[in-house]
Each structure stands twice: as structure tokens, then as C-alpha cells.
Design a protein around this nucleic acid. Structure first.
Lengths: 243, 243
DNA sequence: CCCATTAGTTATAACAAGAAACTATTGAAG
DNA sequence: CTTCAATAGTTTCTTGTTATAACTAATGGG
């Protein structure tokens, strides 16, 4: 598609480039009470005052060395700890998404074990909202519902062929616990022996020798994730009818 | 007294927060002369004057409605046509990546058929550089070598489980041509019958009835990509020893 | 001491992929 | 006109992987 000369000139003549506002937002997932949950905060200020939104805010050029640093800073500010998993999701930028004008937000998504967080303090303004389908049961500010949907799709998709689900559990976990995480997020039951074969063959878990977890039946072997840096991939997607 | 949202917006000063410079860059891939190639431009201005760089530039708040629109505009400016495939890669932002100070760039990657482009006009300043390994045989400006490496990794990875390779070919193509695209990018030979089985079973190609492509041997059946919108996934990765 | 409960393994049948040999269709050489 | 080289496309068979279900194992509680 060729640009007309008029179109070209309209764009070209703007020599003074105004900058968009730039923010970083976070989609922080955890699994708790057998539900995938996302952290939401109630906005204190306009626009969208008192509506639920993804946590985030403006980049601070003085203290943030990089966009990722900014995301990590905001994560610490919101929930007080470093997330075991932080990945850039996507950047959303347009004139429309914020009534204040042109903004861009780079969204990160984080995974954490539910035992590593306690948010009892301020239930009114910060909440772990259960994810149903690809969203939550609340209206969200800005385009955050759309962003959250993208994040949920990405999480499910990555679950199919990577090991990121281990980051939703504490360091020591059992295979049935890990399988349950998959089942909760993918919303379908998985076969026990296939799941174990898959996970064991991928070779990224190691037994914690002698340690077991008690329950009402036979105690389960505890494992830990072996190599946090190595990115292991499954050769096939984990759910039988993926897409 | 509380402000209403309308009052808040009236008083809101957009320039309160210092903002980073915001650019959009493009990694435009094609396959030509049996090589994966990326479009590079020689920088006309400082910094990194006369070094090769990914095409891109500043967002124009007046004419770009969104980041993606900006990417499409720049694509049209650089090569004069709409790309059949455009996907956001990642956003890179830090104080270090540009000597002028804090900048962020949102990078898109595009795929196109090599027949749809002709860049004979300005070989000195615009070039389709062959990709070797995860980069090119030239020093690149800014952090563009790093960005390019990420883009190549993403391209290879997506080739394993999606159909995006069809966008590197013209609308009508043969299965051997498609297989060759995979082999060039993945840098390994693929089995003919397995490849055909896979691609046909995925069901996203349709024969162009009666149409054949001539060559030195038996003419090959021409196909077209059936559903440009539907995202089809392979259940397994296409290369045997993926990762 | 038996049973419910959960963990973990094994056997098998169905299925998918890799490899190689096979057939098919064209152009060019002689 | 025949043969051969070249490329397209299919078939067959072997091998490897997955789903399923039945099996064994280990624990606590009645």
C-alpha cells in the first residue's frame, strides 16, 4: 500500500516529536484455593478512580535503569518480594487507551507461589482476583481487561511447552501438586502417568532426597526445580487437544 | 473536596513526569538466494552515523494512533508495501542503550516474500543482509545486534509450532518451496514425507486446482494459505532435536 | 487389621514420526 | 522416440511416543 504524497507530508512535517507517557504495568499470577488468581489494585486517583486495575505506574527515569528494572521495582513495591519469574508480555500504546492522551505501557507478567505472599492488610484496595475464562469478574480500568486476557492466553500457551508452572509453587513441591497447577490453569484433567513421564523425561526436576510430603494417603516425593536458568521445552503440547 | 474525573483531566499536566524517548524499530525478514535476510539501513545521522541499523524511528503522536500503526507506517515508508505478517517482538528500554539518554523502543518483526520487494535503488544505504547464526556480518548501531538475535530466536521458535513461514512466500507456493524455507531458517534438512504429512494434516493449505509450477523435474502442485486469520499450531515441534 | 486415600509404576494398544524405497511427471540429451 | 536426470509426491515399514487403565505401594484412621 503506497502512501500518498499528502499523507507522507503530513507525517514528515512534524519535526518536533512529542513523547507519549510511558508506564509499566504488571500481571501478577498466583494459584490459591485451587484457582488461578491475578493481583488487582483499586485506583486511588483519576482517571478510573476506585476501579480495579493492574498494578503499575510511571517509569522513573531517575531511579529505573531499564524497563525491566522498573517492573521489578514495582513488583517489590506492590508485594514486597522479588518474583521468581518475570517476563515481558507486550507493549500497549495508543491515543485511545487513556483519557489523558497518548500513552504506552509495557506489561510484564509475573508468577509466584501463593505461600510467598500475604495481602491481609488491605483487602479493600488490593486483591487476588480469581481468573475465570480469560478475565476477572470485575470491570477493569483502561484496557486492562484486554491486557489481562492476553496474559492469560500467554500463560496457558507457555504452560503447554515450558516449565514455568514450577514458579507458581514453593521451592519444594510434589509432582501431584505440580500436576494440579497445570490442571487448574489449563482447566482440564491430565493423565497422571503421561504427566510424570513428561516432566521426568524433561529432566529439570530433582528429587529432594528422603524428603516427603505428608497427606492423607501415601506421602509424596518432594522435588525441586533443577536449573532455574535453563529453558526446557516439551516436544509436544501438554494438553491433548491444544488448539 | 473530591475532583470529578472531568475536572481531574482538565487540570492534568501530561508533562509532569519526565518521559523517555520512544521509538519503534522493525526487524523485517525475507528469504532470498537461499538465505534468511534482514533489512538494514545505514544511519544518516548521529549517533552511530553511517553504521548499519534496524529501520525505525520516533513515534509521531499526531499521525500514529497506536504503536502498531506506527510500525505499519514505518514499514510502508521503508519498503513501500504492507507486510503480510507483523508481530510485536519486545520493548527494549534503558538509560544505556542510546547515548542521547533514556530511550525505549518497541520492536516489531515482519515477514515478507522476497518477490514483493525490490531495493535496487539504494544499495548503499539499504540492504538485505544475510543472517548467519543469530546475527549479521556487520556491526549494528545501538543494541540492535541484541534485538536482532532475539528476533531470530523468536522466528526459529515460532517456525517450530506455527505456520508463519507461509508469509515468507508469495500467495501461491509449492510444498517443496515451503519446506525449503523451513530448512533455510532452521538450518537443518527435514524429511519430505514427514513435512508433507504435517503440513497437510494441519489443514491450513488448499490446493490451487490445476495450477502447477514448472521446473526441471515433475511440476509441483501450487497451494495457498487457507485461513490467514486462524492461528494453527503443530502438536509437536518440527525439528527433531528442538532445544 | 482392614480399608480408604493418595502416590507412583507398568503393560498395552493406538498413534505419530523417521527413513527409505517406491511411483509419477516433466525436460533434455542423444 | 527412447532414455535419463531431476524433482514431486506416495507408500510401506519400523520405531518411538502417548493415552488409558490396571496395577502396586505406602500411609492414616476406624
Amino acid at each position: 500500500m503506497e502512501l500518498t504524497e499528502a499523507e507522507f507530508l503530513r507525517c514528515y512535517n512534524v519535526s518536533l516529536y512529542e513523547k507519549p507517557s510511558f508506564t509499566v504495568d504488571l500481571v501478577i499470577f498466583t494459584v490459591r484455593d485451587e484457582q488461578l488468581r491475578v493481583l488487582l489494585v483499586k485506583r486511588a486517583e483519576h482517571p478510573f478512580k476506585d476501579q480495579w486495575a493492574l498494578p503499575g505506574g510511571f517509569l522513573d527515569l531517575q531511579c529505573d535503569d531499564s524497563v525491566e528494572n522498573c517492573a521489578m521495582r514495582k513488583l517489590v513495591e506492590k508485594i514486597g518480594i522479588r518474583a521468581p519469574y518475570l517476563e515481558q508480555l507486550k507493549t500497549y500504546g495508543s491515543r485511545e487507551r487513556d483519557p489523558r492522551g497518548w500513552t504506552a505501557t509495557t506489561v510484564y507478567f509475573a508468577l509466584m507461589a501463593s505461600n510467598s505472599i500475604s495481602l491481609e492488610k488491605d483487602q479493600e484496595r488490593v486483591r487476588w482476583a480469581p481468573v475465570q475464562g480469560e478475565g476477572v469478574d470485575k470491570a477493569l480500568a483502561f484496557d486492562h481487561a484486554h491486557i489481562l486476557a492476553d496474559a492469560v492466553v500467554r500463560l496457558r500457551s507457555k504452560l503447554e511447552y515450558t516449565h514455568i508452572a514450577v514458579h507458581l509453587l514453593p521451592e519444594a513441591f510434589t509432582l501431584p501438586e505440580l500436576q494440579q497447577i497445570y490442571e487448574i490453569i489449563l482447566q482440564q484433567p491430565l493423565d497422571k502417568s503421561s504427566f510424570r513421564r513428561r516432566v521426568v523425561q524433561a529432566g529439570m526436576l530433582e528429587e529432594i532426597a528422603g524428603k516427603l510430603r505428608d497427606g492423607s494417603g501415601r506421602p509424596a516425593q518432594l522435588y525441586r526445580f533443577r536449573d532455574y536458568d535453563r529453558k526446557t521445552f516439551f516436544p509436544r503440547s501438554i494438553s491433548r487437544y491444544a488448539r
